[in-house]
């Protein structure tokens, strides 16, 4: 089978698996809802744009951990060998990254809606939506690029308690720093072309992350 056919088949498989057990997706949305509501309860007044931005990214990171950490759960054990003979590991990592980044993008848009609902829309008054959306898209891609390979590592360690956060969080540092700066600008109404420097940085980081995952994943997969 060609690489892109394999990728498509694998994505379809993941979607149908997710559809069969919708409760895990619902769980993540519930997590988002609960954390934002906690913020709403602890803040007596509406947060400033700075705090809003920081909170948004922290909550998105942790729901990313929740959503992506289990992405190789179905591939360990007997199924692992079945898949190992059947597909190219490069197709597998691409499929996982594409699927996970779509999931992350959906989650962050849902998160944005929940934020607007509970923490007020006054922060979003000047927002440049196109610019903010491009930031979300690129961050979701980079986030899922790093977290997918980390969850592949964690799956080899049988998901020992909390190891995925210890391994993953420091790796996310550069990505989160850039996207946090970028989205702060987008919230203030700066367009994507006015923010080219950070946007290019984000893009370069994404390319680096995806290349690294692409090169390194086959070594993890071949046992």
């Amino acid at each position: 089978m060609k690489l892109h056919r394999q990728i498509l088949t694998l994505i379809k498989k993941d979607i149908s698996l997710e559809y069969k057990s919708l409760e895990s997706l619902a769980g993540i949305v519930l997590f988002l809802l609960a954390t934002v509501y906690t913020c709403f309860l602890t803040f007596k007044k509406m947060p400033t744009a700075e705090i809003w931005n920081a909170l948004f990214w922290i909550i998105i990171i942790f729901s990313g951990f929740n959503a992506i950490s289990g992405s190789f759960k179905n591939e360990i054990g007997g199924k692992h060998f079945y898949l190992y003979f059947l597909v190219n590991p490069k197709a597998l990592i691409f499929a996982k990254i594409i699927y996970n980044s779509t999931l992350m993008l959906t989650l962050s848009i849902i998160g944005l809606a929940i934020f607007a609902l509970f923490l007020g829309t006054n922060v979003l008054e000047d927002i440049n939506f196109l610019s903010f959306f491009i930031g979300l898209l690129l961050t979701s891609l980079g986030l899922s690029g790093i977290l997918t390979i980390i969850s592949a590592i964690a799956s080899q360690l049988d998901f020992k308690g909390g190891i995925i956060t210890v391994l993953g969080l420091p790796l996310l540092f550069p990505l989160i720093l850039i996207s946090q700066k970028y989205s702060a600008q987008a919230l203030a109404g700066v367009s994507a072309s006015g923010n080219m420097n950070l946007l290019l940085g984000l893009l370069t980081l994404n390319i680096a992350v995806i290349t690294l995952s692409y090169v390194l994943f086959p070594y993890l997969w071949r046992q």
Partner: peptide
């Protein structure tokens, strides 16, 4: 794998 990833980050 983790070492290479962390070096580049």
């Amino acid at each position: 794998v983790y070492n290479i990833l962390s070096f580049f980050m």
